[in-house]
């Protein structure tokens, strides 16, 4: 299992994204799927950076590992902010005309589209979001 923990801020964004990219490549995903995993993780990471710690500094932790039979890959994204499940947001109307479209929900909509399973748990004072993607 690979693990990274660092302050949740924009300065660390590239390092967090690079970590996920490298781990997903090592797990055997092709370039297209690696980018889908990056897409989903970016939304969650940005949510943590922007909203988890409104009036203090705080950390973000990411853990990656393959499942037991090697058919897929887990990513856990953890923060210690107020209880928040980003995936509980309603889906946007993607057929709305561009001028009426609600911009904010698009990212979470894409997470739902590209990830095979996800799960949110509040454990003690942490939010744990687990994303799972099958290798093929």
């Amino acid at each position: 299992m690979a693990d990274i923990i660092m302050p949740a801020n924009m300065e660390n964004f590239d390092r967090l994204m690079d970590f996920i990219q490298v781990e997903a490549e090592n797990a055997g995903f092709d370039k297209k799927l690696v980018n889908k995993i990056r897409l989903a993780c970016e939304e969650i990471i940005i949510n943590v950076i922007n909203y988890a710690y409104p009036d203090k500094e705080g950390d973000i932790e990411i853990k990656c590992n393959s499942n037991k039979d090697g058919s897929g890959f887990f990513i856990k994204i953890i923060d210690w902010g107020a209880p928040f499940n980003p995936l509980a947001k309603p889906e946007p109307d993607i057929n709305a005309p561009a001028d009426e479209r609600e911009i904010g929900g698009l990212g979470i909509f894409l997470v739902r589209k590209v990830i095979d399973k996800f799960d949110y748990t509040r454990e003690g004072n942490s939010n744990i979001l687990t994303l799972f993607k099958y290798l093929s």
């Binding site: 980018n35 990056r38 970016e42 561009a98 001028d99 479209r101 698009l106 990212g107 894409l110």
Partner: peptide, 21 residues
């Protein structure tokens, strides 16, 4: 362009919303 996320898509949507429908 190798990768685009929702932040990139929003710029495209935004360009239509702000510059002219």
């Amino acid at each position: 362009l190798e990768y685009i996320s929702s932040a990139g898509l929003r710029v495209i949507i935004f360009s239509k919303q702000k510059i002219g429908i």
